[in-house]
C-alpha cells in the first residue's frame, strides 16, 4: 500500500515561501513524476514527503494515517538520491543490507532479501565489491537495491539519472519502468527532463515556483495543456508560441502550435519564412525557421528527410485542429 496525500502543505525557508499551500494525492501503485525547471521546488517537495525537511504547515498522510511529524525512517518510504549516497566503506552486500540491519531483522531474512534484490537487479557479479569500484550505472542499481529490500510503501527518486551518460540513461529509464511494472509499488520521481517524465509517468505533476501548474497523464498534458507554461514545457522540440496579429485572427492572445503539427512546403503555404538551421536526424528533420513575422523562431518537425538548406524560402501551414489557444492570462481557451 502506498497512497500519499498532501493537504495544504507549505514550506518556507526563513521569509521565503518556496512551496505555497499545495494539495496533491498520489494513488497507490502510481508512477508519479514531478517535473519543472530547476528551482521550481520539486526536490523540496520530495524531501518534504520523505521527511528530510519539516513542513511549515499542512498535513501529509500516508495510507490515510497522518505522517506529518513522523521521522523519515518511520514513514516506510525509500529514497534513491542523485549522488546515490552509497556508503563507501561497505561492500555492495552490506550497503543493501544496511536498512535491514537497522531494522534488526534476523540474518537469514536479510540474506534472503539481499540475494533476491541482487537477482532482480543483476548485482550478483559485484556483490562483494565496494561502491568505489563500480561504474555509475552499477552504483545506481545498488542504490535501487538498497531501496527495494525494505519493501517500502513508496519509492522516492531524486533526479536519479542525471549523473549518467545519455545511453545509460535510456537503459536505466527502461529498467526503472520495468521495476515499477513488476513491483506495482507507488513511485515518485523528480526530474527536470520532460522526456523522462513523458516516458515513465502514469501521472505528471508540472511545477513552477512551488505552484502546481497541471496534473495529468502524459498524453493529457501533451494534448490539453492547461496554460502556456505547460504547453511550452511538455513536448520536444518545444511548442511554438505566437502572439500578436496572427493570434488575434484566432481570437486569442497567444496561439501555440507544436512543431510536429505543421505542414511544410517549398512552394506554398499559410506562413512564409527562411530556413535557419536544419537538423537532420534521419527519422525526423527539425527545421528552425526565421523571418516569419510571427515569432523570433518557429520550429517545425517533419518525418523523413527534406532538402532544405540555410537561407531557403519555406512555407508553413499549421494544422488548425491542433492549434492551442491561450488568453491574456496564459490560460487555455476552449
Amino acid at each position: 500500500m502506498g497512497q500519499i496525500q498532501l493537504k495544504q502543505v507549505t514550506k518556507s525557508f526563513g521569509d521565503v515561501q518556496v512551496i505555497p499551500p499545495l494539495d496533491l494525492t498520489i494513488e497507490d501503485g502510481e508512477f508519479t513524476v514531478f517535473v519543472g525547471p530547476s528551482g521550481c521546488g520539486k526536490s523540496t517537495l520530495l524531501r518534504l514527503i520523505a521527511g528530510l525537511e519539516d513542513i511549515s504547515s499542512g498535513h501529509i498522510e500516508i495510507d490515510g494515517k497522518d505522517a506529518t511529524n513522523l521521522v523519515p525512517a518511520k514513514r516506510g518510504l525509500a529514497m534513491v538520491f542523485q549522488s546515490y549516497a552509497l556508503y563507501p566503506h561497505m561492500s555492495v552486500r552490506k550497503n543493501i543490507a544496511f536498512p535491514l540491519r537497522m531494522a534488526k531483522m534476523d540474518q537469514a531474512e536479510i540474506d534472503r532479501r539481499v540475494d533476491g534484490a541482487a537477482k532482480v537487479l543483476n548485482l550478483a557479479d559485484y556483490i562483494d565489491r565496494r561502491p568505489g569500484q563500480l561504474s555509475g550505472g552499477q552504483r545506481q542499481r545498488v542504490a535501487i537495491g538498497r531501496a527495494i529490500v525494505r519493501e517500502p510503501a513508496a519509492f522516492l527518486f531524486d533526479e536519479p539519472l542525471s549523473n549518467l551518460d545519455a545511453a545509460l540513461r535510456v537503459g536505466m529509464r527502461l529498467e526503472i519502468s520495468e521495476l515499477h511494472e513488476r513491483l506495482k509499488t507507488t513511485m515518485i520521481y523528480v526530474t527536470h527532463d520532460q522526456v523522462e517524465a513523458m516516458t515513465m509517468a502514469d501521472k505528471i505533476v508540472v511545477l513552477r515556483a512551488g505552484f502546481i501548474e497541471q496534473v495529468g497523464s502524459p498524453l493529457e498534458l501533451y494534448h490539453n495543456p492547461r496554460n502556456e507554461f505547460v504547453a511550452g514545457f511538455i513536448g520536444s522540440p518545444k511548442m511554438n508560441l505566437i502572439k500578436g496579429a496572427e493570434a488575434d485572427k484566432h481570437g486569442a492572445a497567444t496561439i501555440g502550435i507544436r512543431p510536429e503539427h505543421t505542414d511544410v512546403s517549398m512552394s506554398e503555404g499559410m506562413w512564409q519564412g527562411t530556413v535557419g538551421v536544419a537538423e537532420h536526424l534521419g527519422s525526423d528533420t527539425f527545421i528552425h525557421v526565421h523571418e516569419t513575422g510571427l515569432a523570433d523562431m518557429v520550429t517545425v518537425r517533419i518525418t523523413g528527410d527534406i532538402q532544405a538548406k540555410h537561407g531557403d524560402k519555406i512555407f508553413l501551414t499549421p494544422q488548425l485542429d491542433k492549434l492551442h489557444k491561450f488568453d491574456a492570462q496564459g490560460l487555455r481557451i476552449g
Binding site: 521521522v71 538520491f81 542523485q82 552509497l86 544496511f98 536498512p99
Partner: peptide
C-alpha cells in the same frame, strides 16, 4: 562527508 549519505542513513532507519 557527503550530507546525502547521512540523509540516506536516516531514511534507512539509522538513529
Amino acid at each position: 562527508l557527503d550530507s546525502e549519505q547521512l540523509e540516506a542513513a536516516e531514511m534507512d532507519g539509522a538513529p
